[in-house]
Write a protein that binds this DNA or RNA. Structure first.
Length: 233
DNA sequence: CACTACATTGCGGATTGGTT
DNA sequence: AACCAATCCGCAATGTAGTG
């Protein structure tokens, strides 16, 4: 239980002195007198029963106890400030739409979509965009940390219990080396790939595109195309 | 030794908060 | 509402240590 004698002013004074390394400068920053600052710190030290600063003729330095308090008081005060700030935003009725998007979506589709949405909404709602792999975005969506995700269709298991809507088709581009039999073949449709061995990114521990690879293999197999997933370097 | 920069102490008025 | 103790904070004086 926090000692009831410890007030917010004590912690604010402590943090400012720790920042400024000087009672006088900290007092100036907080708009109190230097003796007032000295007393406030002394009170806090008496309450805690330990010295927080080493006094020198040229200022002050944190003691080990001061460092320990700083590690906890700093985040605590910041959390409090953020809480008060959040209440202020809620009071001002600021709405935020939290959108998860793949990097390709973020740069191409999203800017125009956000512009249209804000025009349609005609209010002060803001948009907070988070990018990352599908699995990461979907996990945040499930935890309620995102309002919606714009990404690729993925395995049914990952989108189970989620409402989704098909937005668009994405054009895929086949890239081959110079001199490859498929280079210059036009139009290049899957049946025309013949028996050419293919290379497809195989998901590893660093990659979450398992669904992309498996879908690729499945679709090619349906068209009688030999398609061997391998790890590209 | 004088000056400067800093912290500490004592005092007192104003404010706050709990109790009746 | 009145009372009172605790708290807050400013002013003035004082102490300490580094510097030229």
């Amino acid at each position: 239980m926090l000692n009831a004698r410890i007030k917010l002013r004590h912690l604010q004074a402590f943090l400012e002195v720790a920042r400024q390394r000087s009672f006088a400068r900290a007092a100036e920053r907080l708009a109190i007198t230097q003796p007032g600052m000295s007393k406030t710190i002394k009170e806090l030290e008496e309450i805690l029963g330990t010295a927080l600063f080493e006094r020198t003729s040229r200022g002050v330095a944190l003691t080990q106890a001061g460092l320990t308090l700083l590690r906890h008081a700093g985040p605590a005060i910041r959390a409090l400030e953020e809480g008060v700030s959040a209440l202020g935003e809620a009071h001002a009725a600021v709405r935020w739409l939290r959108v998860g998007a793949l990097s390709t979506v973020e740069s191409r589709l999203l800017p125009e979509a956000i512009r249209r949405w804000q025009q349609a909404e005609a209010d002060e709602a803001g948009v907070n965009v988070v990018t990352g792999p599908s699995a990461f975005l979907l996990s945040r969506l499930r935890r309620g940390e995102l309002d919606l995700v714009v990404g690729r269709m993925t395995e049914a298991r990952e989108i189970r219990d989620l409402a989704f809507e098909h937005l668009y088709y994405e054009r895929l581009v086949l890239v081959v080396r110079s001199g490859h039999p498929l280079a210059g073949v036009e139009p290049l449709e899957p049946p025309g790939w013949g028996t050419s061995p293919g290379c497809c990114h195989r998901p590893g521990p660093h990659c979450a595109s398992r669904s992309t690879a498996s879908a690729c293999v499945t679709r090619c197999a349906c068209r009688g195309v030999s398609w061997r997933p391998c790890r590209c370097r």
